[in-house]
Amino acid sequence: MLEIRNLHARVKEKEILKGIDLTVRTGEVHAIMGPNGSGKSTLAQVLAGRDTYVVTDGSVVFDGKNLLEMSPEDRARDGVFMAFQYPVEIPGVSNLYFLKAALNQIRKSRGLPELDAMDFLNVVKERMKLMDMDQALLNRPVNAGFSGGEKKRNEIFQMAVLEPRLAILDETDSGLDIDALKIVSRGVNALRSPERSMILVTHYQRLLNYIQPDFVHVLSEGKIVRSGGKELALEVEERGYAGLEWETADAR
């Protein structure tokens, strides 16, 4: 589903990704771990199409298409979803309206009829239960005045409604207390499916206690330095990132 080859990217003059190789097959859940500044979030942003990052080398193929040539909205319409580390507030635009516009854009691009208000509400109500979302949050402006936990929950709720094929979760666990973490993880787990791939970007192993990845990769200084199964996360937890970097194990 996703093939990343020798991906280099920089922001301004600083090179951050220095040759990433990663293959994510349909239905797999990959965790990307790494210390601060290792390039985890950059990787997520580059995949989503943020133009502050300039790709200088390498390729990303998503479902046979050159992802890097696509606009952010086209990637979204093709099923790439990113749950933001810092969800953005949009005052004046109701959460529900925003989501309906997004869903209908995505449906339109796939040749599906747009949902009317009633059908949309039905979809929303069902997904809301999953995330324990308060109905009041739906009518409030997008993320405006939401607590940190509410924002993250809202991201996963959006993912549940938009049903992407590739979900990139950028530090979804950061800033969450244990109860919120459980709710968010339950949501993510419920959305796991053989048709959907996920990339979890996280600093801590904690999230992976709740969402068990199929593969774990450790990123350091813009390169994947270790790859393994879920047990690699435990090793990271035990020895810290510094301990791992001693071994210059081949990435993949």
Binding site: I90, V93, L99
Partner: peptide, 29 residues
């Protein structure tokens, strides 16, 4: 209207035009 707001909207499948329209419209509601 911030670049981050526009990007957020685009990441959800909305065009820049729709995003700006939506934000302006919300502002004037």
């Amino acid at each position: 209207i911030g670049e981050d707001q526009i990007f957020y909207c685009r990441q959800r499948g909305l065009s820049t035009e729709d995003a700006v329209g939506m934000i302006v419209n919300g502002f004037c509601k």
